[in-house]
Amino acid sequence: MMRIKKRSVIPGFGLSVGFALTYLSVIILLPLAATFIKTADLSWTQFWSAVTSDRVLASYKVTFGASLAAALFNMPCGLMLAWVLVRYDFVGRRVVDALVDLPFALPTAVAGISLTSLYSTNGLFGKLLEPIGIKVAYTPIGIWVALTFIGLPFVVRTVQPVLQELEPEIEEASATLGASRLQTIRRVVLPGLMPSVLTGFTLAFARAIGEYGSVVFISGNMPMRTEITPLLIITKLEQYEYAEATALAVVMLVISFALLLFIQIVQGRLQRRLGT
C-alpha cells in the first residue's frame, strides 16, 4: 500500500513510515479494532437492545443535546471572540488570546470541580441564580456549562487564522460600492468565515460528546436525566457488563468517526476553494 511515488533523495522514508505505522497500529488501531470485535460476542438483537434501552436512549439525549447546545452557543461567542482578537486592539488582548487555550491545557477534572463549586447552590454563581429559580449544578444546564467550557477554544482557533488571512481589499471594495459596515460584515465577511465556523462547531461538538472528566462532577449523574453516555459505559464496566459497555462504545465511535469524516470533507473543500 504505502509505496513511494517518486524516488526521493531524502533518506528515512522506510524508517519514519515504518515506525509511524507500527506505533499507530499498536497504540490506536489494534485496540480500537478490539472494541468492534468484542461486540461480536453479542447477537444482533442483543446488541440492538443494549444500545437502545430506555436508559441508554436517555443518555444519548442528554449527551447529544447538551453537546449540541454547547457547540451552538460557542459558535457566535467564538466568532465574536476571534473577531475581537484579530481586529481590535485593547488592553489585555494578548492575555485573553493566550487564555482561550485554557480548556485545552487545564485537566478536565480540575475544570469539573471548579465549575461545580461555582454553580452549586452555595457557590458564587449558584447563589445568584437560585433565587431566580435557575439551578445549574446537577442539572442538564450544568452539563451544558461544562461542555461550553471544553468547546470554547475550537471555534476561536479555527476562525482566527482565516480571519487573519481575509484580505481587507474585499471589505474596502464592498464599502466603496456603498455597502454599510454591517452589510459588509453580513454579506461579505461572514460567508467567507462560515466553513471555518462550521469546522470549529463540529470539532467542539465531537469533543463534547466524548467528554467525561468535567461533566461527572457537575452533572449529578442521575439516570434518565443527567447521565451522559461515557459515564454509562463506565457504569456498565463496573457492573461487569463488558459486552454492553463495548456496544455503547462502538455506537459512540461510529458517530465520532462520522463527525471526523465530515470535518475532513469540509476542510478539503475549504482548502480547494482557497487554492492551497
Partner: peptide
Amino acid sequence: LIDLPFAVSPVIAGLVYVL
C-alpha cells in the same frame, strides 16, 4: 488516522485496553 484519538472519548480510550 493521526487525528483519530481526538475524536475518541477518553473513556473509550481506557476501555479498549481493558478489553
